[in-house]
């Protein structure tokens, strides 16, 4: 990535930030601190053993917006997503270089506790993966381990409000003690979102959250993502360009471990600068 491109990107990002901030400030004047939150990645590289999976990714992710990562299989979009909450740490032989900052704080700083980081950056996975426990316990697990609820009533309130935010409460309110694995695929995925929300994260990462779901469940999740955008920074990896176009405000296109192009979703889809982006969007590669 050249310097001029970098500068351009920064400019665009800051412009977006300001508009975003003014919008959310109008909606929610109390959280003025949180609105400054954003992720900045500079020259992020990932090696799996001898193989390099990411080549110097630099990107800014704005607050209270949905950023989508698109690109063909194996392009590194999921790898980069997993750098943001350090899930790559759990993979044997993975090495991450460069810096990623959350609110100006380096998340790979050795003094930073990864447990705390993951409480601030929640994640929703490709396949719905509820715990083999009750619906209630699934949502209550995060608050429990982080000691977020002072009393039982507190915990119940967190669970109910999280389920509400995930748009699942009405469907499961009579069977909170039933196993979460007994729900349908789409409901399971919303349960996973509720579970992530319950911890009160600032950022939610979603790794192809709809790829295992049917179109109706997908539509519900997409609506939900759109609602959540008001309160959270959302990063979504998706295979579907239509989905990226529908839910995101910013889009980044990855190819072969490189970030080829990123910017406003509208621009990327209507007026891509790069030839590869154009080809991908037109369906010629990938």
């Amino acid at each position: 990535m050249t310097n001029t491109e970098n500068a351009k990107m920064d400019m665009v990002a800051s412009k977006i930030m300001t508009t975003q901030q003014s919008v959310s400030a109008a909606m929610n004047p109390i959280d003025s601190l949180e609105r400054q939150l954003r992720l900045t990645a500079r020259d992020v590289t990932v090696h799996y053993g001898a193989k390099q999976a990411l080549h110097g990714i630099s990107i800014d992710i704005p607050d209270r917006a949905v950023t989508s990562f698109i690109g063909p299989s194996g392009c590194g979009k999921s790898t980069f997503l997993r750098c943001i909450n350090r899930m790559n740490d759990t993979i044997e032989g993975a090495r991450v270089g460069g810096t990623i900052k959350l609110d100006g704080e380096d998340i790979y700083d050795p003094s930073l506790d990864v447990v705390e980081l993951r409480a601030r950056i929640g994640m929703v996975f490709q396949k719905p993966n509820p715990f083999p426990k009750s619906i209630f316990d699934n949502v209550a697990y995060g608050p429990r381990i982080h000691g977020l609820a002072k009393s039982k009533a507190d915990l119940e309130e967190i669970v109910v409000s999280s389920l509400r935010k995930a748009g699942l409460f009405e469907e499961v309110k009579d069977r909170l003690s039933e196993p979460g694995t007994g729900l349908s695929g789409g409901q399971q995925q919303r349960l996973c979102i509720a579970r992530a929300i319950a911890v009160g994260p600032e950022v939610i990462l979603m790794d192809e959250p709809c790829s295992a779901l049917d179109p109706i469940a997908t539509a519900i999740i997409e609506e939900l993502i759109d609602e959540l955008r008001e309160n959270y920074t959302i990063v979504i990896v998706t295979h579907s360009m239509q989905q990226a176009a529908r839910v995101s405000q910013k889009t980044a296109f990855f190819h072969l471990g490189n970030l080829i192009e990123h910017g406003d979703t509208e621009d990327i889809f209507t007026n891509p600068v790069n030839k590869q982006t154009q080809d991908y969007i037109m369906g010629r590669i990938g």
Binding site: M87, V115, E116, L117, A119, P130, F131, G142, I145, A196
Partner: peptide, 20 residues
């Protein structure tokens, strides 16, 4: 998937092993 679910929520390794 189960391990990732626990780790992704911010469970420590010990919590992941013993709770899930």
């Amino acid at each position: 998937a189960l391990r990732q679910a626990a780790l992704g929520l911010g469970a420590s390794k010990t919590q992941m092993v013993f709770h899930h």
